[in-house]
Simulated assay, not measured.
Amino acid sequence: MLRVTADDHLPGPVAVLTNPTAGRGRHRGLLPRLLDGLAAAGRPIRLLSASSPVEAETACRAAVAEGAGALVAVGGDGTVHRAVQAVAGTDVPFGPVPAGTGNDFALDTGFPADPLAAVAVIADALRAGRSRPVDLARMTDTDGVHRWYGAVLAAGFDAIVNERANRMRWPRGPRRYDLAIVVELARLRPRRYTLRLDGVPHEVDAVLVAVGNCPTYGGGMRICPDADPTDGLLDVVVAGRVDRLTLVRVKPRIYQGTHVDHPLVSSYRARTVELAAEGIVTYADGERSLGLPVTITAVPGALRLLL
């Protein structure tokens, strides 16, 4: 259960990162109303400018360094992921406004699905000086590079599909991802993973490994159905030597979280997860992230939510 803290939020302006292309632009026309809703909290609003994910992250870091009193991200999980890099482990409270195709972190941590309703919740928290701490996952590669994520790290078939889709120039839109699934299903094979869960080693042959701070990814798929972003732990779900037909049959069950009952699916829970395999680039919150091997650690209370 989330713990509520009442405090004097930092006095600077509320920095707002927006992604007008999130959710294929369907909420773009709402932006003036969303900004008005935030301004109703009686705090100055600073709209951040960015034309790429890298620029978005840089703008958020700069705003925090310059004394922002809070950070709000209007978009999907990708926009939230970029913003979280700037506020993780700081005293700057954060509010995600779900306006993307996938809004898993915002919904899993208790924000309304409607963007205007989410802004009303954030504005109320700003007025009251209220925030609630939640955990984040911090991953580090062998070069010491680290990234934070809030929802789920994908390190198997799902990550491989994303990697292929991102390399494709045709077709555009969702069909590119569908084609990438078809191509990678034809190439499906288990890979050898080395897992160390709180220091205990496991060698597994698997087609999918997910490490969740929250239950869902990919727009509502409950890949780690029992994950709780307030328990100080990470949930690890491993699909073992699954063939193509079984994977296609089991995939619909991920939306209900019942895939974990399949005999070839194993679940674990740990504070620290060391994960290694050849040729895998991970995807965290749906964003391309670090290549394996990585060490992932649950960091309790690393983020303060305006909730």
Score class of each variant (00 low, 15 high):
88 A>D: 10
259 H>R: 05
209 V>R: 05
64 V>R: 08
288 R>S: 15
112 P>I: 02
222 R>I: 00
278 E>G: 11
221 M>Q: 03
239 A>S: 13
19 N>L: 09
95 G>Q: 08
187 R>H: 14
218 G>W: 04
33 R>M: 07
6 A>F: 14
287 E>L: 11
107 L>W: 05
294 V>N: 08
269 R>P: 02
242 V>G: 05
117 A>Q: 09
209 V>I: 12
147 R>W: 01
136 L>V: 12
84 V>G: 00
51 S>G: 15
130 R>H: 14
229 P>K: 01
263 P>A: 10
63 A>I: 12
40 A>W: 09
116 L>G: 03
25 G>R: 10
185 L>A: 13
169 R>M: 13
270 A>P: 01
272 T>W: 01
23 G>N: 13
216 T>R: 13
212 G>C: 06
72 V>Q: 04
109 T>K: 00
122 I>M: 03
40 A>Y: 04
31 L>E: 11
184 E>N: 14
261 D>P: 02
257 G>F: 01
33 R>W: 05
220 G>L: 12
284 A>G: 13
296 I>W: 03
125 A>M: 03
128 A>E: 15
32 P>V: 09
62 A>H: 15
198 D>H: 08
220 G>D: 11
184 E>D: 12
174 P>M: 05
208 L>G: 04
207 V>C: 07
69 G>M: 05
137 A>S: 14
28 R>L: 05
34 L>C: 08
18 T>F: 13
109 T>W: 02
62 A>E: 15
275 L>W: 06
128 A>V: 08
14 V>P: 02
270 A>N: 06
233 L>E: 06
158 D>G: 07
95 G>F: 09
181 I>W: 09
171 P>V: 14
176 R>Q: 04
255 Y>H: 04
193 Y>R: 05
143 D>K: 15
141 D>V: 02
244 R>W: 08
77 D>V: 06
302 A>I: 02
65 A>K: 11
154 A>N: 12
203 E>C: 09
277 A>H: 02
127 R>H: 13
6 A>L: 11
144 G>V: 09
283 Y>W: 14
303 L>K: 03
287 E>F: 12
208 L>P: 04
41 A>W: 14
231 D>C: 06
275 L>Q: 01
78 G>K: 04
62 A>L: 15
228 D>H: 03
157 F>N: 07
285 D>N: 07
94 F>N: 05
97 V>Q: 06
97 V>T: 07
173 G>R: 14
267 S>Q: 11
184 E>F: 04
77 D>H: 03
170 W>D: 06
115 P>E: 11
187 R>N: 12
99 A>V: 14
210 A>T: 12
178 D>C: 11
177 Y>E: 13
298 A>L: 03
296 I>C: 05
75 G>R: 01
82 R>D: 08
165 A>K: 10
237 V>I: 13
44 P>C: 10
230 T>C: 13
232 G>I: 02
157 F>D: 10
255 Y>S: 02
248 V>Y: 01
285 D>K: 01
265 V>A: 00
38 L>S: 09
201 P>S: 12
116 L>W: 05
102 G>K: 13
93 P>A: 12
250 V>D: 01
92 V>F: 07
224 C>D: 02
266 S>Y: 00
52 S>N: 08
242 V>Q: 03
